[in-house]
Design a protein around this nucleic acid. Structure first.
Lengths: 153, 153
DNA sequence: GCTCGTATGTCAAAATACTGACATGAAAGA
DNA sequence: TCTTTCATGTCAGTATTTTGACATACGAGC
């Protein structure tokens, strides 16, 4: 019978639910759930919304760039992009004169749909912000960034 | 031609990458990626690891309880649980004398595998913790909790 | 010119997760 | 007791995401 190998926890915690990773995942899951629900009324999924938002800010992004911006693989974003094109929200040329990357951009309808959905998403963002002391918002963002960078994200 | 409907952002931000939701998702994605990579060497997926960790701490949890603890649906956890049972890491009675919930528990091999994988996961946890000022760790956890609760998570 | 390395778009297949649905078991209330 | 309500386990189907692979296109270095 082998002995168990008790690993000292990274910080004082009585159980896994007190670990940073667990809390982070829980918050992300709550956010995802709230966004799923809110965006469903606008006929959009979370990756679709993320794609529209990125394109609104940076028209001409390629599929690979959108994938990195939305934290999914190129292949997943490709599927998302096809759906958005089929829905008439995004347009993309079939060829390009330089390189392989095909620059995507929003259509008029895409912008309208994004504007409508943004209200719902911003309401969620506000819920999160209002839940924490205003003084700590910048610190929170900075800490999230530091963790992300430490993980090579 | 319709006018666009500019929605005032929830807090001063030049672009979406400065929104709380975006940062949160990015951190969670980085964590997920790091855990995926680390756990692959131990032949485990993230949901599988989460399941083992929950069962180590609370033996006898049912499928539904594990699902809630790992932030997935009952159906998804059912697949995970089947895989772990097939791999001999988890055991579950086929019947029970009271109720429908079937209490799961780790096997000897399951505990060994968990102990091995925990080292890798704790190293990641430590990377995150070391990246932020020690004084802010408690505040960070509290803020994450407040956001989660605000979102009904 | 040529090769090597890197980045991109896309196809195919598998893995993973979800929604919808149904039957079972237990607790609470009329 | 009977009914209602709720939680659970599980099946089926669908949707989503990932891994693996390949061809293409550019730039750096020789």
């Amino acid at each position: 019978m082998k002995d168990r190998n008790p690993v000292p926890p990274p910080h004082p915690a009585r159980d896994v639910t007190e670990h940073v990773g667990y809390r982070l995942k829980r918050s992300a899951a709550a956010l995802r759930g709230a966004m799923d629900k809110a965006l469903r009324e606008h006929g959009l999924t979370v990756p679709q919304y993320a794609c529209l938002e990125l394109l609104d800010e940076q028209p001409g992004l390629s599929n690979a760039e959108l994938a990195r911006g939305a934290f999914v693989t190129r292949q997943s974003m490709n599927v998302v992009l096809r759906g958005l094109q089929e829905a008439g929200l995004v347009a993309r040329p079939s060829t390009t004169d330089h390189g392989r990357a095909l620059p995507a951009h929003l259509t008029e309808e895409g912008r309208d749909r994004l504007d409508a959905a943004r209200n719902a998403v911003y309401a969620i963002e506000r819920q999160m912000i209002d839940a924490i002391p205003p003084r700590r918002l910048t610190a929170l963002l900075a800490d999230l960034d530091r963790m992300t960078e430490a993980l090579g994200g």
